[in-house]
């Protein structure tokens, strides 16, 4: 392939800025995934991405801002291997400045946990998660991988859109 070969067009980066409130988070997640092209993510991967992003945003609302007003800035960058996500806020830092370990809470009988699942699911379903506390707030980045099989299944659609 020559140096000046035109790379296949990747879907555009998506950026959303919205208030750190439960209903605004719900609207933002809906906006992201209701129009997600199916060749970009399979239905299963879309569900996974929705879980991870919703949990990260819920944590920002509940813990970083904890009722204080503020905005969340979310960028999704489609790549060959999945979606790169960058989410920033101007709320309080993570406890001890690190991402919670996210141990799966368990219980016995009726004594089951009602919370603590969020970071477990984020860590289980994302890759390369990293957190930076900056002077102006928090920055969390992670990758949502696509499976090869799903990529291949979606490939004809990519070809179709390239040749249009």
């Amino acid at each position: 392939m020559s140096d000046n070969a035109v790379p296949p067009p990747s879907p555009p980066r998506v950026r959303l800025v919205f208030p750190a409130e439960p209903l605004a988070v719900r609207a933002a997640v809906g906006k992201l995934f209701d129009h997600m092209p199916t060749e970009l993510l399979s239905e299963d991967e879309r569900g996974t991405a929705e879980i991870v992003i919703a949990e990260v945003l819920n944590n920002i609302v509940e813990h970083a801002y904890a009722g204080a007003p503020g905005n969340i800035d979310l960028t999704l960058d489609p790549t060959d291997t999945g979606l790169n996500c960058v989410i920033t806020d101007q709320g309080r830092p993570m406890p001890d400045g690190v991402i919670p370990i996210g141990v799966l809470p368990t219980g016995v009988g009726l004594d089951q946990p009602e919370g603590g699942f969020g970071w477990y699911m984020i860590r289980a379903l994302s890759r390369d998660i990293s957190y930076n506390r900056r002077p102006d707030g928090n920055c969390l980045t992670f990758h949502l991988p696509r499976r090869q099989a799903a990529f291949l299944a979606g490939f004809p659609n990519c070809i179709g859109s390239m040749t249009q």
Partner: peptide, 29 residues
Amino acid sequence: DSSGLGAVVAVMKLLGPDRKLELAALTPT
């Protein structure tokens, strides 16, 4: 999400030990 999951667990607890919460027809996510 995890808040919804927590709420389903809370509903199970509301029923106490003598009544049972069962789930039906879960969608994929």
